[in-house]
């Protein structure tokens, strides 16, 4: 397992980006009454039709445009995407993330940002669980096994 590339604590951009994400979730609920949970928005897209598919596609298109704006027109080097691990690991991880977010009804955005944002004990329990398991996994992979 390759080591994790070093990153630095970036409090200002983290807080600013977090505010934007919160604002996005609030806008989607205030405008269309929908939870901004990315796993459900994209995962349930194949079984939706008409207006129900429409808002999902528009949201996802907006998400790509928003990210592309910063990547391609933002300050140089403001964001990198540094993948850690090869194809087998990333494919396995993708399967687990897909299966887990379906079974657990949400991901970092649906349970974390939105669920805790509406004070749901269910979402708080889910968020605590995936955070703890993820931290344990990193410890196992990068310290116990990768040492």
């Amino acid at each position: 397992m390759p080591p994790i590339p070093a990153t630095e604590f970036t409090p200002v951009s983290a807080l600013l980006g977090g505010l934007l994400i919160g604002l996005a979730a609030l806008l989607l609920m205030a405008g269309t009454g929908r939870i901004a949970g990315i796993s459900g928005i994209v995962g349930n897209l194949p079984e939706t039709r008409g207006a129900e598919a429409g808002w999902r596609l528009l949201f996802l298109a907006g998400l790509l445009v928003g990210a592309a704006l910063w990547v391609h027109a933002g300050p140089p080097g403001a964001v990198a995407v540094e993948l850690v691990g090869g194809a087998p690991l990333l494919l396995l991880a993708g399967l687990l993330v897909g299966a887990g977010t379906r079974l657990g009804s949400g991901c970092t955005s649906g349970h974390g940002v939105c669920g805790i944002g509406r004070r749901s004990p269910r979402s708080l329990a889910a968020t605590a669980t995936f955070m703890a398991v993820a931290a344990l996994t990193v410890y196992l992979v990068h310290h116990l096994l990768g040492a």
Binding site: G17, A24, G74, S109
Partner: peptide, 14 residues
């Protein structure tokens, strides 16, 4: 617009 803000937030926050 919500998607755009969301994507921008993910990028700005890295």
């Amino acid at each position: 617009l919500a998607g755009l803000l969301f994507g921008l937030g993910l990028a700005v926050s890295q």
